Simulated assay, not measured.
Amino acid sequence: MAAEAIVHQPEGSDAWLRVWRDIVKRAMPGIFIYPIFWAVIAASSGFHKLHPALSWSVVAALTGISIVRLINAIYLTRVQPEKRQVWQGLFWFGILAHSGIYGSMFALSLLSGNAQFSLLMAFSGAGIVAGGVNSFSPSRNLAYAYAIVFLSPGIVVALWSQDLWVEAGFIVTYLFYMWNLVRQQNAEYWVSLNNERTLALQSRTDSLTTLNNRRYFDEKLKELCHLSSRDHMNLSILVLDCDFFKAVNDKYGHDFGDECLRQVANVLTTNLPRATDVCARYGGEEFSIILAGTDLQGAQLVAEKIRNKIEKMEIKYKNITTKVTISVGLVSVRLDNFEVGLPERLFKYADEALYLAKEQGRNRVVCSVASTALQAGKVKTASL
């Protein structure tokens, strides 16, 4: 999996999901290639006439495994992270079962005395192995295991038979070639994926504070509104603004103002209760937070904790020391259904609560009336 390939690989459930989505997508076209190739080769070479029971048994086994793999592929990228090991293990089982059975039939073809059967199995086996290691190369261990399980029966049979030393040499050489191919393709995959993730991170990150930016916040708010509506959960949004920040910039300069924003951002990230909470610089001196699964009381506690920490914090930069305060507007509702425009309306309620906090004297937390008077799906723009 992710930890199996090379250094600098991303970790966590998101990385795992991305890698296995790629592997499943790559492997999908070849799921039924095994029973199809075997049936065609056994019939065209005459092998099925000499060994009908074995031929049909192999067709049945390969087809059954293909069906299991198809079902597994459909569900693998949908499972919860805590259940992924079971489905990933089943994926491995299907891959290695296919390679083991087909590889054993290839080994049998070396002893069959049927030149056409041996030739077709050799050509098809070489192509299947090459395609397989390419498909599974994001997981280097899986690709290695696949090639070894597929080719080992042929190597053993060729070495055991004293007149197949040349064939044994070819198979071993091909295995080493596949081994090196896996290493190269695995490295290329992870370099490409890391570059992609770096660009994605840059596109969603505020360069000054290293918080998420407005674009990411808006995308995440929409996603969490969908999820919270589906699960009938609470969702809280906080909008925070530094009080009299223009005066700070005018008095101390923009360099000091930038440092002030960085230190405020640090307080926000270090005082959020969960790693899954979303914190972003929404623009200028305004920040925004999403607390999924948090009710009004919990959101108020978080907001007051942050407000209190910032009020007591001293901003120090180049022999200059000052203090700042923040005003906070929040909305917290239980979402029962999703409507078009719901994320925007909820953010507007929190933003309007922020303006009320400013009007009431700043350095305070104000809750939107939507938090107590309204339910998601019933909210109206004119409610406030």
Score class of each variant (00 low, 15 high):
A247P: 02
Q375F: 14
Y317R: 03
L227A: 11
M1H: 10
L291E: 09
V328C: 10
R281Q: 02
H226S: 07
F123Q: 09
M233F: 06
A73R: 04
V7C: 07
M121P: 05
N266E: 15
A382N: 12
A130H: 10
C279S: 11
K220F: 09
P29Q: 02
A126Q: 09
Q202W: 08
I36F: 12
Q184A: 13
G169T: 06
G100M: 06
F287Y: 13
G169Y: 09
S135E: 08
L240E: 05
A147T: 14
C260S: 09
W38T: 10
S152Q: 14
R84D: 15
A353E: 00
A126F: 13
A265C: 11
V264S: 06
S45D: 06
N271K: 03
R345Y: 08
L354C: 01
V267K: 13
E82K: 11
A126M: 14
Q88E: 15
T322I: 01
I237H: 06
I310A: 11
R230Q: 13
F93N: 00
T276D: 10
A27M: 05
G103W: 05
D218Q: 02
R21K: 13
Y355A: 02
P273R: 15
Y216K: 12
A107F: 05
S327T: 13
I171G: 01
W160T: 04
N141D: 05
T294A: 11
S44I: 15
E188P: 00
I23Q: 02
T77H: 13
H51Q: 12
I320T: 14
